[in-house]
Amino acid sequence: MSETAAATPLPNPAPVTDRIARRFADLRAQGRAGLVTFITAGDPDPETAAALLAALPAAGADVIELGMPFSDPMADGPAIQASSQRALAAGMTVPKTLAMVRAFRTRDPDTPIILMGYFNPIYRYGTDRFIADALAAGVDGVIVVDLPPEEDEELCGPALEAGLHFVRLATPTTDDRRLPKVLEHSSGFLYYVAIAGITGTRSADAGVVAEAVARLRRSTELPIAVGFGIKTPEQAAAIARFADAAVVGSSIVDRIARWTQSPAGGPGGLVESIAAFVRQLADGVHGARRG
């Protein structure tokens, strides 16, 4: 446990693994935004989830957010709650999640993977051990919903020191006074939460989000990804016109939920249908700035 004094200065957010920086530099060079896709590790079961993960880059995912299932996902709506429950019921754990990334990395050395979840499973695993094992597995960064800047010494500090990106969330409630605190130890990219709310519920007005992103750009050089409430290729395209990336999660895992109700085509059928949806999203995002 890291129980050091609050005043301990954190290291600068560099150097870190650079797959994220390379990917956003490539996107910028191509003049397009990126697509970030979310699935939960182990949903609907560990084997099928591994197949889904492997299929995402070819379908057009530029960055992958891999959810670490948690029994009590307080910031998530019904879709991702159910996704977590399916993964846990199928026996998913932190070690199995890391193994899944390790297997993915043997075939894909480039696509950045961000683990997204809640702190308790990491804390229980052992924070330092988690950082070391995540880096060894080929994880590029983490997003931990319940670790605001006030709790930076828990994971953010040690992660940055070890070279693991700590991707921070900025939200509509992060006002100008608070923003510097949020940006201070952000690394990799900044994740703008488009609504004050939980995942997979309301959708924000793209114009309002554009203004918020413009405000963030005045304070940071980091690429900005926007998520929460982006469900369709059209919505993703609207965000991609001004953000560096659009994040889609609930509407993907919703398709997994529907498949578990009537598993058309077996696991292969699911992978195909998710890949087809991700292709539509990618077409929307990648073409957004043309015309």
């Binding site: 446990m1 129980e3 609050a6 307080m74 910031a75 702190f119 919903v145 319940d146 670790l147 605001p148 800047p149 006030e150 709790e151 921070r168 969330l169 900025a170 939200t171 509509p172 409630t173 992060t174 006002d175 608070r178 949020v182 939460v193 004050a196 709310g197």
Partner: peptide, 21 residues
Amino acid sequence: DERGRFGIYGGRFVAETLMPL
């Protein structure tokens, strides 16, 4: 203490959206 800790316990482990509140 000023961070809401009793020894190692307590704290403010909430989503950023709630933090200002």
